[in-house]
């Protein structure tokens, strides 16, 4: 299985920076620490026999259940997952890298969690990270131009957070 090979390579190189892996998932993923993300990505891109030179997508999944009744039943702790889908044009392989973050930095609501930018590794990440920042509320440190991209610049909140509430009004337009 190809994913096992990638995991072995990464573990040999980065040791404790690889915090977990799910190889039996439909799309196997490998979890890395935020601090090592850029190094892992650069390694995956530059190794001659890996060449993950194509960043397909960056997504964020918010694991949080706002409804207290349902929250008692869910089997996860509140957190965010930043998901990087990578591919190799040359070898036609793919791999998923995940970074787990707290929902808020230092548990202060409104204080966005931080992860280093990979826009220096793949330029695709530039706009994708802006979109993630805009909609899911993750701050990419070192990003050259971290602004909202889809929502207006003066929009408040991050709509894809599970506890997001639509504003009552925006510039005189009724929201809900």
């Amino acid at each position: 299985m190809a994913a096992q090979v990638f995991l072995d390579r990464l573990q040999a190189r980065f040791k404790t920076a690889i915090t977990g892996a799910h190889l039996d998932a439909i799309d196997p993923w490998i979890e890395v620490t935020p601090q090592s993300l850029v190094d892992v990505c650069t390694y995956l891109r530059d190794e001659p026999d890996l060449q993950f030179n194509f960043l397909n997508c960056i997504s964020v999944v918010d694991y949080f259940e706002p409804d207290p009744k349902k929250a008692a039943k869910v089997d996860f702790q509140p957190h965010l997952e930043v998901v990087y889908h990578l591919g190799s044009i040359k070898y036609k392989t793919s791999i998923v890298i995940k970074v787990l973050l707290p929902r808020w930095k230092n548990d202060v609501p409104g204080n966005l969690p931080e992860v280093p930018t990979v826009s220096g590794v793949w330029s695709t990440a530039n706009w994708h990270e802006r979109e993630v920042f805009d909609l899911s509320g993750v701050r990419f440190t070192g990003h050259p131009d971290l602004r909202r991209i889809l929502c207006p610049e003066d929009w408040e909140g991050h709509p894809l957070r599970k506890d997001y509430e639509m504003p009552l009004e925006y510039h005189g337009i009724r929201g809900r």
Partner: peptide
């Protein structure tokens, strides 16, 4: 390349997350 990403918690018919990776979004960024 149009990508879709679906995450389900296994607790019903509604996905936890639905994501669309847009091809034009990347094409325009250049």
């Amino acid at each position: 390349q149009m990508g879709f990403y679906i995450v389900s918690l296994g607790n019903g018919a509604i996905p936890w997350r639905a994501r669309a990776r847009s091809s034009c979004f990347c094409n325009l960024s250049v």
